[in-house]
Design a protein around this nucleic acid. Structure first.
Lengths: 162, 162
DNA sequence: CATAATTATGCAACATTATGCAGTGGAGTC
DNA sequence: GACTCCACTGCATAATGTTGCATAATTATG
C-alpha cells in the first residue's frame, strides 16, 4: 500500500471530500466516488471507501448515496408540498421569497432543498418565510414562475391571490 | 540521555512550545511535532511527546490535534473551520451561499462573523445553509473564491470546478 | 438461474501511539 | 561531600489503528 506519513489527517481529509462530493454530485457507486476523489487529488481504493462510507453512516438512496442526515425523510414531490404550504412567491433580485403559514416554512424549505432545483443555491427558512438564493435574477424569476405554476396545479386559478 | 542541567524548565518550555505549535499549525502526528520542535531547537523523542500530550489533555481531532480548550469553544481560524464544515460555496448576485452538513451552519457562520471579512455585510445561518450578504456582486465573487480556496488547504492542487 | 456489477472483509504490511524499564541528575538531608 | 529519593527521559518494544490487495458476499440484470 501507499503508506502515507500522516494517515490520520489523510483519512480525515478524504472523508471531508467524501461528504462534499456526496452532497454535491449524485455518486452512483464506490467506483464513481473513487474517480471523483482522484480528480480532486485524493488517492484511495474501493476497499477504503467502503469502510469510510460505513463509518460515515452513508446510505444508498434511490438517487445515489446520501449522507445520513439527508437521507431521512421520505421522498415527496415538490408540487404537492408547494400546494400544501406555499401561500405566495415573489422575487427580489436574485432572491426568491416564499411565504407560508406560520410554522410551515421549514417543511417546505426541506422539500425545496431535496428537489435540486436548477439554479437554486440554497434556502433559509424562518417561521413563515423562506429565502431561496438563486444563481442570477433571471433564474430567480424562472424559479418563481415555476413555483407559482405549481400552485395552480389542480386547483382553480382564482385561489391565488395577492 | 542528554540530561539538561535544568529539567524542570526544559520540560515546561517544551510543553509551552507544544501548545504553541498545536494551536498554530496543523500537526498530524507525534513525529511531525517532534520535527517542528527540533526546528525550534527543542530536542526530544516520540515517547516523551506521547507523555506530554497525554498530560496536556490534547485530543486528536479530525483536523489534527487540538488542545482541550480549543476542542470545545473554538477560537479557530476561519480556514480550518471552512475545511471542516463547508461543503461548497456559490454566488448569486450579492449573496454568497455556503452549504454545510445539517447542523453545522451556525458554527461556521459564527466563524465567518468573527473573521471580519472585507466587504461582508453579515450572515444568516439556517440549518445547513448560510447566506452571506456582500457589499456588491464583485465582492461576493471574491469572497466565494477565497472561501473556495480554503478548501484546498495544505495540498498542492490544480483546479476547482464549479 | 446465470452472470455481471457492486460492496464487504480477512489478512498482512505499515504507521502511529503507548509503555515497561533502567539510567540520570537535581533536591533534600545529614 | 555523600547518600537517598524520585521526577523525568530515552530506548526498545508492545499495542493499536489504517490501508491495499485479493477475494468473498451480496445485489442487480437479463
Amino acid at each position: 500500500m501507499l503508506h502515507n506519513y500522516a494517515m490520520q489527517s489523510v483519512r480525515a481529509e478524504r472523508r471531508r471530500w467524501i461528504e462534499r462530493l456526496l452532497s454535491d454530485d449524485s455518486i452512483r457507486n464506490q467506483h464513481d466516488l473513487l474517480s471523483r476523489l482522484q480528480s480532486e487529488g485524493i488517492q484511495s481504493t474501493q476497499a477504503t471507501l467502503s469502510r469510510d462510507l460505513a463509518d460515515l453512516g452513508v446510505v444508498k438512496g434511490s438517487n445515489g448515496w446520501r449522507l445520513p442526515d439527508q437521507a431521512v425523510n421520505a421522498p415527496m414531490d415538490l408540487a404537492p408540498a408547494v400546494r400544501a404550504y406555499m401561500l405566495h412567491v415573489e422575487v427580489g433580485g436574485t432572491l426568491v421569497v416564499l411565504r407560508t403559514r406560520t410554522g410551515h416554512a421549514t417543511p417546505l424549505a426541506v422539500e425545496l432543498d431535496r428537489t435540486r432545483l436548477d439554479g437554486s443555491l440554497g434556502t433559509i427558512a424562518g417561521d413563515d418565510t423562506i429565502f431561496l438564493a438563486a444563481k442570477s435574477s433571471a433564474v430567480a424569476r424562472g424559479l418563481a414562475r415555476r413555483l407559482q405554476g405549481m400552485l395552480q396545479g389542480d386547483r382553480p386559478r382564482r385561489f391565488v391571490r395577492r
